[in-house]
Design a protein around this nucleic acid. Structure first.
Lengths: 245, 245
DNA sequence: TACTACATCTCGCAT
DNA sequence: ATGCGAGGTGTAGTA
């Protein structure tokens, strides 16, 4: 793909708000929330239909450089080659891509109204606990789930039928020190707002690190081994549930 | 691009570990850390040279689906169209992309040994404080920075010359409740390890939320308005520094 | 490997 | 717009 063809392709793509993809040899400067420089090399550049700009190196999952939607992207001749400039006035940032050689590329309008459905999130986990409180303990009675009460974002909130409030924080992966700190914050807040010291803290996750468990115990909280639900597990649970009747 | 050409392109790209890019109409199923389904629509699929697989919708910055390097990717005929399968045995996850129509695409070996240099990270910020302790206060004396001591990950550690140890947590953006919790964890750890109660906590960030400031004060800690360094600021600082001699 | 914390985090949701 | 927390977070650094 020669320079003229790419300039033309870019203008068409920009005007029609099409996806533009190009493999090229380039050098990149970013300035905004930080400052960055990437010396010359071959990368994949993607301009999406909403103005998102991505630069991918040939390995690793994340873009090495990017600009969010809402900026302005231009392509112009620059000292014998090309300069692709992304400017985001609102955020005072820019991404300058000096393009030396354009290898391959295309542009096209993509039609996609699809929304992904996802099962196994932390929200699904707190749903699961609310619907199956015995996962926490035989006496646990859920009151609310992910409710925006005066105490803030508590994943599951309940009581134990023995005069204690119970605050549960869920993590869908290994719980670390940060999760314990978060739980502690919620428990302290509940104690303050409800004006009681009878508040138990429970961390529910499929795993917990050693240091986190130690810190959890030092606060007097407990850990429960709970996994985020998946389809087959939910299915198995439904069967068991049906069997109970 | 017809089906046969894409099958051939895929096999060449896979064998030579080349970048493969394709715009297509597809339907996607993921199972692994969670379970997800994305109904039919037009997307951009990228297979990188290390086996990373990305699916981008025409808008938004993040891939809607992906697989990390280390898995196996195959393309085969499937019920009259194509199935691109990524399997990651180690992580027990798979990404199945049923491709109905291939629109555009190319494959190419990209040569890129470039590493990005970046200024303005949190590490740069703690460097800046160590080199310029007056950013914290006239009496602050830094001792260590990001050192892995018995106290753990403390961004900047020092004393105030008045018998108090000082723990500083840096955030390059607005500090929230999580940052205060983190600082609190470090201060408590230092008190415990050093066997003293004379430990001050300081949160250094360009901004802090109201609730975070309130929580910070309730612990008796302080906030300092510090910005992550940028090139021109560092330049200005160097000039000032030179001027001091 | 496990653990920890950063990230130009991004994204959605609620106030 | 800001605050807050999740994320299939990813990634780097260290023990």
């Amino acid at each position: 793909m020669d320079r003229g063809a790419f300039l033309e392709a870019f203008e068409k793509a920009k005007a029609a708000r099409e996806l533009l993809v190009v493999a090229c040899d380039c050098e990149i400067t970013y300035s905004g929330r930080a400052e960055a420089f990437l010396p010359r090399g071959e990368r994949l550049i993607v301009m999406k239909q909403d103005g998102v700009l991505l630069v991918h190196q040939p390995e690793n999952g994340n873009p090495i450089n990017y600009l969010k939607a809402g900026g302005d992207i231009t392509l112009e001749k620059y000292e014998g080659h090309l300069m692709l400039r992304g400017k985001h006035a609102a955020q005072k940032e820019f991404l300058d891509i000096e393009i030396f050689t354009v290898h391959d590329g295309f542009h096209r309008k993509l039609e996609d109204g699809g929304k992904q459905t996802l099962l196994g999130s932390e929200a699904d986990m707190s749903d699961s606990i609310r619907d199956n409180p015995s996962l926490i303990g035989p006496d646990f009675k859920p009151i609310s789930r992910e409710e925006q009460t005066a105490v803030g974002f508590v994943d599951v909130f309940g009581h134990d039928g023995q005069g204690n409030l119970v605050v549960i924080e869920c993590k869908r992966y290994t719980a670390g020190l940060d999760a314990v700190s978060q739980l502690h914050r919620y428990v302290e807040k509940v104690k303050q707002v409800k004006g009681t010291k009878n508040v138990k803290g429970i961390l529910a996750s499929p795993k917990i690190t050693g240091n986190a468990l130690e810190m959890l115990k030092s606060y007097g909280y407990d850990w429960r081994d709970v996994h985020p639900p998946k389809r087959h597990e939910r299915h198995a649970k439904s069967q068991k549930h049906l069997g109970e009747f």
